[in-house]
Amino acid sequence: MVLVTETQDKRIRWGIISTGHIAGVFARDLALLPDEAELAAVASRTQDKADAFAAEHGFARSYGSYAELAADDAIDAVYIATPHNDHVGSARMCLEAGKSVLVEKPLTTSAADTESLIGLARERGLFLMEALWTRTNPLLRKAVEVAHSGELGPIRHLDVSFGFRFSGPDDHRLIDPAQAGGAIWDLGVYPTHLSNVFLGEPTDLVGFGHRTHTGVDSHAAATLRFAADGDRPEITASLLASLEIDPTNRATVFCEQGKIELDSVVKPESITVVRGTGGDAEREEIVTQLLGGGYTLQAQEVMLGVRSGKLESPLVPWADSLAVARTLDRWLETVTDEVPAKPAGSATSGSGRSDFAQSASDRSGSER
């Protein structure tokens, strides 16, 4: 469905809900697109935070509540960068106020909520997209093109891991159940989206995982099966999401006559296409350089959709976000309900954290 809009020949006026770390990264990347994007307004739970964020990033207006931003008629699109537990409420509020919406991943924390939010966007005729920025990366699209071309033979297995050892406080959004924390929702969404973009929705899922002392899942693995379909043989995939270890954070697509390696699950800057097997294999590296922090591509995808009157992006379509939500629900069901005792020193933030873990701790509090 394509609607005629008033924004086809002007800059898209952006609002941002939340003033946390990820909101700042997105704001800085929007500022790199002055011919396409206008920094219209930002909202926080306090006026002081909103004012400081607006001054730092150059937003025209600031609000001390999310509702005030949603009611601003001079905004075309809103980026919601709050913790997971707030995604549905803020997204619904903005859609009901007539705003197109980009929601930080995961779109919601259940397939039922995802379906409801998509239904509201469809009903209101507004653009809605899950901010899974990796899917807008041209290197990922190239990897999918090569994998589906058949030049390496059929895909047989996908291996993806994403995580880091977290050692922050108990009220951090990553392990706070009140903020819908947990490894699967925060980290597992990336491997699940990668399996979706290459393989679709799994036929079967077997998983294992356990919880940390706060009650949220902290380490989870899953094996996925994709049934044979026509000429396509059965495919398997292994996914890992962890807040307890520092895995490779890479992805590999194994085909019968080669493989494709992604140097990063989140922000690939190079892929390696391996043609052949064993000692005769030939390797081709394909690289890219992303503008800013890499969020410009997903911002441009939203603005393209808003200007053209589309309701969804072909790069992050609603059907895929819903399929991923169903898979995440299934994965979560495999995590044991047993909650271990709090280990000694678990709430301290040691100096040995990785850079990713450090940036996660910077997003602590009520906003990301």
Rank of each mutant, 00 (worst) to 15 (best):
A222P: 03
F198R: 02
E201M: 12
G209F: 13
E201V: 03
A241E: 03
N196T: 13
G209C: 14
D263R: 05
L205D: 05
V216D: 07
P233A: 06
V206I: 12
C255R: 06
N249K: 02
I245V: 09
N249T: 01
I184W: 07
S242R: 10
A251S: 12
T236V: 06
W185M: 08
F198Q: 06
L187W: 08
L205I: 11
T192W: 00
L224S: 10
F198E: 08
P247F: 02
S218M: 05
E244Q: 11
L262C: 10
E201A: 12
F208K: 15
I184M: 10
L187P: 06
S264C: 14
L239W: 15
V216A: 08
S238D: 10
G215C: 12
K267L: 13
P247E: 02
V189E: 05
F198M: 08
H213M: 06
A228L: 06
P202W: 05
L205Y: 04
L240F: 09
H213C: 12
V265G: 08
S218W: 02
V189G: 01
T236W: 13
F198Y: 07
D186R: 10
R225V: 12
A227T: 08
T212W: 10
A222E: 15
L262K: 08
I245L: 08
E261Y: 15
H219A: 00
T252F: 11
E256I: 04
G209L: 14
Y190C: 02
H213R: 08
I184Y: 04
I184A: 13
D231S: 14
C255G: 05
R232E: 01
G207D: 05
T212S: 10
E201T: 05
F208D: 11
C255F: 03
P202E: 01
S195V: 09
V206Y: 06
V266Q: 14
A241P: 00
S264R: 10
E256W: 00
V206S: 06
P247N: 04
R250M: 14
T203C: 03
D231R: 07
S264N: 14
